[in-house]
Write a protein that binds this DNA or RNA. Structure first.
Lengths: 211, 211
DNA sequence: CAGAAATTTTTCCGCCACGGCAAGTTTTGC
DNA sequence: GCAAAACTTGCCGTGGCGGAAAAATTTCTG
């Protein structure tokens, strides 16, 4: 394995991560723009400037390539939760890191541009694909495991005997999903941030850390 | 279309339903016994005595073929809910129909036979397959729609303006999923019926129909 | 009941997904 | 530098998937 957890990433590792995210992003972009059915692995490989075979070395298929970006974000959230000052209250830390990832660059509040609408519709359609949903379920399970560990570490409890961390992870995951889905279907379009913020605030009230 | 909703099913329709369930059951059996990866559509078609192409005329793939049995059961539950006497309290009716479908032929309570264990393990493995999970998500959405309509019809409310029916459908669906998953992982093995029964009882208390 | 009409099943065919294997390249570590 | 390790690539066989038209079956009609 890699004994060092982070900093001195060799050139090789950096390049790998680079192509990995490039492939994932390319897959998402093409599928949102053209629709799931109208994208072949060959198209994706072409956009990312690698061979078809290389795409397959990274991902087992379009679905996994798309879900990968989702996993990365969830894992990043768990990591950032660990990086928060230990003195900060649990739910303040959670709200902070989650909103930092999902808040995004606040859209100009005015009327939605035609291209923004096309993108939203494309994403919604893409997310409806069963092949992708399955992969997302899998991704969420993995991500929630990591998040639960981060929570357990923070409040100093054993994840094996205390369900609280898992509960928090599951609930935060569910809230994120609902918020995203809401922002994709709401009319007029709504930003994810504020909705998610209110949800987390309510959840925090009901789920204060056990004494 | 078919103006008559049911009874006088022609020979043709009967045969179609027959091969449909035959294909679905064959797919489930083979995948549970051999594992998802080790089953080709050709194998399934062979078992069901039809051509590979015919399998494809019925289902888009293994996943859909398996999920089909699940959908049928859920839709059957919704139908049976409609058939219950209108005087029966809502949650009594729900509990009745759900347990009738999920109760199954009560297993002999003694030690689990080796083959029963293999089956349980096979099912658990199969259900972990992302391709299948996606299809199940889709199936649940459809089934819950039907169930919600049945509930709305029963308590005489408009499903478009009242969330109660949808809530009940979602909750019953979730309880069913959890109960099944629990019965597949619990040690020692547990029957679905009793677990589900208790869950529904609790839910009924919290979700009495709105005045 | 024969023959037409409608529908399903099957055969044939091509495209794409998927993954093992054996070069060909690039990065790493000494 | 140079050899080993790791990554990329092309090749190719198996299987999933679906369009199109022939063959078989059921249903309809005179």
């Amino acid at each position: 394995m890699t004994p060092d957890a982070d900093a001195p990433l060799g050139l090789r590792e950096r390049k790998k991560r680079e192509t990995r995210v490039a492939l994932s992003r390319a897959t998402i972009r093409l599928c949102v723009e053209r629709g799931w059915e109208n994208v072949t692995v060959e198209d994706i490989a072409a956009v990312a400037n690698v061979s078809v075979r290389t795409f397959r070395n990274y991902f087992s298929g379009k679905a996994e390539a798309i879900a990968a970006s989702h996993v990365e974000r969830m894992l990043r959230i768990a990591d950032e939760l660990r990086a928060r000052p230990a003195t900060e209250p649990l739910w303040d830390a959670i709200t902070g890191v989650v909103l930092a990832e999902f808040g995004g660059p606040a859209e100009p509040a005015g009327a939605e541009s035609p291209q923004a609408r096309r993108w939203r519709d494309g994403v919604r359609l893409m997310l409806a694909e069963p092949a992708l949903q399955g992969e997302i379920v899998k991704a969420n399970a993995a991500a929630q495991g990591a998040f639960a560990e981060a929570v357990a570490e923070r409040i100093g409890s054993d994840p094996a005997h205390d369900v609280y961390p898992k509960l928090v992870a599951a609930v935060v995951g569910a809230a994120s999903s609902v918020a995203v889905e809401h922002s994709l279907t709401a009319e007029p379009p709504t930003a994810v941030g504020p909705v998610l913020a209110e949800m987390l605030e309510r959840l925090a009230v009901g789920l204060r850390a056990p004494s």
